[in-house]
Write a protein that binds this DNA or RNA. Sequence first.
DNA 1: GAAATTCTGGCCTGTCAAGTCCAGAATCTG
DNA 2: CAGATTCTGGACTTGACAGGCCAGAATTTC
Lengths: 201, 201
Amino acid sequence: MSGERELTAKGLATRERIVEYAAAVTRERGAANTRMECVRVAANVSNSQLFHYFPQGKAEMMIAVARYESRTILADQDARLRTTRTWRAWDEWAEALLGHYDENGSRCGLAALLGQLDQDAPEIREVLAGLLESWEQAIAAGIRSMQSARKISPDLDADTTAGTIVTGILGGIVQMTVTGSTNRLRATVRASIATLKAARQ
Amino acid sequence: MSGERELTAKGLATRERIVEYAAAVTRERGAANTRMECVRVAANVSNSQLFHYFPQGKAEMMIAVARYESRTILADQDARLRTTRTWRAWDEWAEALLGHYDENGSRCGLAALLGQLDQDAPEIREVLAGLLESWEQAIAAGIRSMQSARKISPDLDADTTAGTIVTGILGGIVQMTVTGSTNRLRATVRASIATLKAARQ
DNA sequence: GAAATTCTGGCCTGTCAAGTCCAGAATCTG
DNA sequence: CAGATTCTGGACTTGACAGGCCAGAATTTC
């Protein structure tokens, strides 16, 4: 047993499985209301295992959950946005985003974590800040693709616009968790695309 | 002692004072991390008083806090927006909003409550939904004032636009709590005003 | 001045959940 | 097979915090 962690492939797999179930519970109940006991039952592991893989306890686990959600969202968005060269692709991006929430009914891994920022967990804040940053970059890359394809004017500031779009999505998600309706998210995402189209070339 | 509550003027004043301090503590530490003990000390009352005025305990108190914050925000926004007839007034509105957060450094009563939605408190959700609704209406009223003054085209849908503006503000506030910076809020509020100006008449 | 209320302040209980500990079983790896 | 790890499961400790209880003091109100 060295100072650092050495996990076998099996160990890593188990740890990852725990994180996935923990993320699911967190999405369902919010980070604050996520009980280690619930995760234990959901992941079907023993208590010892939980604390074996997360010696720092719940705090460490929630950071892992934040990283997991972050990775998941970014992988999806990156794939959809990096080489977006048609208006149709943007419409599909928007509908995919909205469709996700229409299906999952305001369960949102991002929103579930946002509620937990008050705690003593600056690391979660950092992870989420990184997620927002990368998300902006993915959208900015999509905008630049459109500019390369001469469909959006090069005068449009891709970074600023991308930032505003992410802010709008975030606000829409929050409104969804408050009101239970995706109306505002829908309106905002469509307004974002309208803004892009207003800069048509 | 009748079935319903009968509070003297003094009693009401004390209750209100408790709510104000509770709101301050909540802003500082977030709803989840707000301890009755902290409120007790801050408001300088005894434990019995706390539970005398809030027989349902913390849950009831947080609802009162939500109503208080809601009232405070709306009173301010209503005053600024209901009869906004000049572009300058909009700029002042925006700067007041941004200035507030630059001063208070990401302390936000609204954000502090948003984090607490996971809990078993549907009433807080309702209060916040009402706040957002009224806020939208205040902004829509401001837009209509501009339309009456023939400064914004009557073709602009005041309600939809107001909804998008509130969504953007909300997203900016959330990003502020995550990143600690008001940059995105600033960009979004300015983009909102730019959208209005784009519908100049 | 009597009745009700407002208020103090401490003490006590209950609950919930995080995290520890341990003895032993199963599994993997060289 | 030997030695490490993975894993079970339960019992246990600890701490935080909500909330109740009570005896009595101050204040208000009629």
